[in-house]
C-alpha cells in the first residue's frame, strides 16, 4: 500500500497507476473534507451562516 514500508511494493507502472489513482482519490476526498470543515469552523467563528441550497 505504501512504497518503502510494505515489502510487496514493486516500483512498476501498474503499482504507480493503481496506487496513484488511489492516493489521488483519497487526497481529493481528504482535502475536500478538510476544506469543508475548516471553512465551516471559520464561518462559525465569524458568525456567518450560509443559506441552504
Amino acid at each position: 500500500m505504501l512504497p518503502f514500508i510494505s515489502f510487496e511494493w514493486v516500483s512498476d507502472t501498474v503499482h504507480f497507476v493503481f496506487h496513484g489513482a488511489l492516493w489521488y482519490a483519497l487526497s481529493v476526498l481528504g482535502m475536500g473534507m478538510t476544506y469543508c470543515i475548516v471553512k465551516a469552523a471559520y464561518d462559525t467563528i465569524k458568525g456567518k451562516a450560509g443559506d441552504h441550497h
Partner: peptide, 24 residues
C-alpha cells in the same frame, strides 16, 4: 451553527465529491 455551515460547505463542493465518487 458549525454543522449548519459544514453541511452548507459540503453542498457547495458536492460536485467534486460526486465526480470522485463516480470515478471510484
Amino acid at each position: 451553527p458549525f454543522f449548519h455551515n459544514l453541511s452548507h460547505n459540503m453542498h457547495e463542493i458536492m460536485a467534486v465529491f460526486a465526480a470522485t465518487g463516480a470515478f471510484l
